[in-house]
């Protein structure tokens, strides 16, 4: 009897070792490749510097509760603080989507076949890839966090932990989105153009650089945004993702606080499922 029972147990152990080992190997490869690619790191550092130190500080004075020199509102945060979580999101978006270039790379240089003839299921391969890309993206998101003191943010450990969790979810979802895009595009150049065409509109219509409610910024009190813009912003899932990060880092939400995390989870699940459907069609 024992012998009969032992066989499946050995097999299960083997399967677990195979899955974990394979997942680790694919994750490690993605991370190593990213670490060895200096260009990516430079982009990851320069982008937040540009947005936080130049955009943020430059526009800071225009985001005050004053109209024609007279203070009318008390806004509980500065413009710098307002865009800070959005810059984290931007950095994660760029790195996540770009990390999917490795899918194109693998296809182009034959490495995909090496992975596809391995006994790993497609789902494990994709999960390893997405986790690897998400790890790098999360790291790039943390690069922005280092600048928190310039934005006068005082973060508690709890804020940071919650924020990191949300960032990780965002990185996972967006890396999956990158894989979906990479599945439809065959060339590196095409991917660069297309990913920019996806990232920047998503970013700008996510209420990242301006609040949806103009009354929050006094200079805009009399401005009403055109309907099409409001609709775009409301339909953009990144709006809620950025909102979730704002909730974590500056304790400000434009929407229900649960909306952001819910959308982040939804994005992660949906995009991973879509990526899995298209992945592995050599």
């Amino acid at each position: 009897m024992n012998e009969v029972a032992a066989v499946p147990r050995v097999r299960i152990g083997r399967t677990i070792r195979l899955q974990c080992g394979g997942l680790y190997a694919i994750w490690l490869r993605e991370v190593k490749r990213a670490v060895r690619d200096r260009g990516q790191l430079i982009g990851g550092v320069s982008r937040p510097l540009l947005w936080v130190l130049i955009m943020g500080i430059g526009l800071n004075p225009y985001f005050r509760g004053e109209v024609y020199g007279e203070v009318r509102f008390v806004v509980p945060y500065t413009y710098l603080q307002f865009i800070f979580p959005a810059v984290i999101a931007l950095n994660i978006m760029y790195t996540s989507v770009q990390s999917a270039v490795s899918v194109i790379w693998d296809r182009q240089f034959g490495f995909l076949r090496e992975i596809l003839v391995s006994p790993l299921p497609r789902a494990t391969i994709l999960l390893g890839k997405v986790l690897g890309g998400a790890t790098v993206a999360l790291f790039h998101g943390c690069l922005v966090l280092v600048l928190a003191q310039f934005a006068d943010l005082s973060l508690s450990l709890g804020d940071i932990a919650w924020g990191l969790l949300l960032m990780a979810l965002m990185a996972f979802g967006l890396t999956s989105l990158g894989v979906v895009i990479a599945g439809r595009i065959r060339s590196f150049e095409g991917f660069g153009v297309f990913s920019n065409a996806v990232i920047l509109p998503l970013y700008f219509t996510s209420s990242s650089v301006f609040p949806l409610d103009p009354s929050l910024t006094s200079a805009q009190t009399r401005v009403i945004y055109p309907e099409w813009l409001v609709v775009l912003v409301r339909w953009n899932p990144m709006t809620y993702a950025v909102d979730a990060l704002r909730g974590a880092f500056i304790h400000f939400n434009q929407f229900d606080p649960w909306m952001g995390p819910a959308v982040l989870v939804g994005m992660a699940v949906l995009f991973f499922a879509l990526a899995l459907r298209g992945f592995g069609k050599v």
Partner: peptide, 12 residues
């Protein structure tokens, strides 16, 4: 399997 075209990761 050894494929006709190289399938190594040349950054590793």
């Amino acid at each position: 399997v050894v494929f006709q075209d190289p399938s190594l990761d040349d950054r590793l």
